[in-house]
């Protein structure tokens, strides 16, 4: 494994220029917030005043300077998270590793911290390697996303590239939701049995009998289920042996929701189909 051109595979952790924000924060319970943050400079031999100054500087960055002398047990989850971040940042690492850092926070706090983390990252210009299971978090925060499957990288791309051009069925399904079409239905639609993915929001649904716009592919389906999500609804449509999902904006179709079992036509452009590699 190389880091900025240097082989670090055999370098012990205390000599790597990488710091980690742990999932469980791993704050030292017998030290104050400031002492926790000053731990890195302390073990590197910084003097007492120097340590304190560095710690307060970074705590300022994560807006925790007023709590510098509290004990970690007196902090909330979000505050502990910030201390863990400050403690890792104080060493000015070249790379900061974040192992599901927001996993233990509730949704609102998580969204706030996402924005804040991104802002801090851009301000400091440090590379963040951010491990997460939350695909929304990955898409909204990252410049580049690597999708792992069984410890191997499946695809590396920009969030947009990953979403628009997933290379494999795994990536298509893992990042956002996707209809993966293969076999007979694929041949029927495109003339080839090569599997392809189509995003639910790219599928238009029309009443049976209505003309398909020129250049669009179409097939007939039966409405099986509708799941209401507020701004949108997810329609599950049976097409032959497969079930395809379409996402419809709720505002326009609210009055025109067809009954279950209704015969409908699914239409989509050829460009919205993403051919997938075989695995």
């Amino acid at each position: 494994m190389t880091l900025l051109g240097e082989d670090v595979t055999a370098v012990p952790p205390f000599r790597r220029n990488v710091n980690t924000v742990f999932q469980d924060y791993a704050l030292f319970p017998h030290m104050s917030v400031a002492e926790n943050v000053a731990y890195g400079p302390m073990v590197r031999g910084a003097g007492r005043d120097e340590r304190r100054r560095l710690a307060l500087e970074v705590l300022e960055l994560v807006q925790l300077a007023p709590l510098a002398d509290r004990a970690p047990s007196q902090l909330s989850g979000g505050q502990k998270q910030r201390v863990a971040l400050a403690r890792a940042l104080v060493n000015r690492p070249k790379v900061l590793l974040l192992d599901e850092p927001l996993g233990a926070l509730d949704l609102r706090l998580r969204e706030e911290m996402q924005i804040e983390l991104k802002a801090i990252q851009q301000r400091l210009g440090i590379t963040f390697v951010y491990v997460t299971h939350d695909q929304g978090e990955a898409l909204s925060m990252a410049d580049r996303v690597a999708v792992f499957r069984d410890g191997r990288i499946e695809q590396v791309d920009t969030p947009r590239g990953l979403y628009v051009r997933p290379r494999t069925a795994f990536v298509a399904r893992f990042v956002g939701s996707a209809n993966v079409v293969e076999g007979e239905l694929a041949r029927q639609l495109t003339g080839s049995t090569q599997a392809f993915a189509i995003r639910p929001e790219m599928i238009e649904v029309k009443p049976a009998g209505e003309a398909t716009p020129a250049g669009m592919l179409s097939c007939a389906g039966t409405l099986e289920e509708v799941h209401y999500h507020g701004a949108t609804s997810r329609w599950h449509l049976r097409v032959g042996d497969a079930v395809l999902t379409a996402v419809r904006p709720e505002g326009t179709t609210a009055t025109a929701a067809p009954a279950h079992g209704a015969r409908l036509v699914l239409a989509f452009t050829r460009e919205s189909l993403v051919p997938l590699e075989d695995r």
Binding site: F14, V18, D24, A26, A88
Partner: peptide, 11 residues
């Protein structure tokens, strides 16, 4: 994880 964190921070 405290021991790991300590090593990670350069101790």
């Amino acid at each position: 994880s405290l021991v790991q964190a300590s090593a990670d921070l350069g101790a």
